[in-house]
């Protein structure tokens, strides 16, 4: 009951946040526009139209145009949910640790590790509800319009939610340490950008300084933190099209970033719970 209480409260808080309500409204608008505007030329199923105007006119032969559209929408969805999501949940730990609030929560008969864990589950569920709703809407529109019921597109919403769950663990850890919503938000965005740099470090960051220790530090950071960019790239690959993925990367689906990220998120959670247990409020 207590765990359910924290989960439900945080979920409610997440879906009522202004940033996530904005995402929800924008998502509905996009679904509506797709419903009204997207189509294809009757004589040529590979030629998509948007309100009657042809789009994606130079489609290579081996690309399925609907699949390509879905991959594009998936990558955009994951990018925007990360942006809105960081804004939406960055304040979740700092806010309950403010003076006058911390006493209320911590004086209840619930342990701190439960509070941390079920609050992160609630925050993730709030984001997952938004992304699954939006992608299910797009999936249904594309299915109705083109007869393509692409289940992997729908399932990729779960991969994006999983990626966000790993990010939430990191944001909550930062929230415990910094206790400042603005700083945690900045940290979230910096980490999001930095994760792309870490993933492609062999072609970028490593070249900045030819030093073995520096390279090892980057490797350690890559494996000790959730591999956000790798998970999102693989979610796009999972949808099944390589057209918008980086041509320099292997195009096969790789599940290992999800496994490594689970391990690193677990470690970060355990360290956060230990820190939370030790702190006075």
């Amino acid at each position: 009951m207590k765990r359910w209480g924290i989960f439900r409260f945080t979920f409610g808080e997440a879906i009522r946040r202004g940033t996530l309500l904005t995402y929800f409204l924008l998502g509905n608008a996009i679904i509506l526009v797709l419903l009204l505007g997207i189509g294809h030329v009757p004589q040529n199923p590979d030629q998509l139209t948007f309100f009657g105007n042809p789009i994606l006119t130079k489609v290579p032969k081996d690309f399925d145009v609907v699949q390509m559209l879905l991959a594009f929408l998936e990558s955009q969805s994951s990018f925007w949910i990360m942006m809105f999501g960081v804004f939406g949940v960055a304040g979740f730990m700092p806010e309950i640790l403010e003076k006058g609030s911390a006493e209320l929560f911590l004086s209840k008969p619930i342990t701190r590790w439960e509070l941390l864990l079920f609050r992160s589950f609630g925050a993730t569920a709030g984001i997952a509800a938004n992304i699954v709703y939006f992608m299910a809407g797009v999936w249904a529109v594309v299915g109705l319009k083109f007869g393509v019921w692409h289940w992997k597109f729908l399932a990729s919403s779960l991969l994006i939610s999983y990626s966000f769950a790993c990010l939430v663990v990191l944001l909550f850890a930062a929230g415990l340490l910094m206790r400042n919503t603005g700083l945690v938000t900045m940290f979230g965005f910096i980490f999001y950008v930095f994760s792309w740099g870490l993933e492609s470090r062999t072609r970028g960051l490593n070249l900045l300084w030819d030093n073995a220790v520096y390279h090892r530090i980057l490797d350690a950071l890559y494996y000790l933190t959730p591999q956000l960019s790798a998970m999102l790239t693989n979610a796009t690959r999972f949808v099944g099209h390589s057209a918008i993925a980086n041509p320099m990367e292997p195009q096969t689906m790789n599940w290992m970033p999800y496994v490594y990220s689970l391990a690193s998120a677990t470690l970060i959670y355990l360290l956060s719970a230990w820190y939370f247990y030790r702190r006075d409020y």
Binding site: G12, E13, L104, S107
Partner: peptide, 12 residues
Amino acid sequence: GYLPENHRYPNF
């Protein structure tokens, strides 16, 4: 039971 000083409730 505890009533803290300057308590802050979730205002939503």
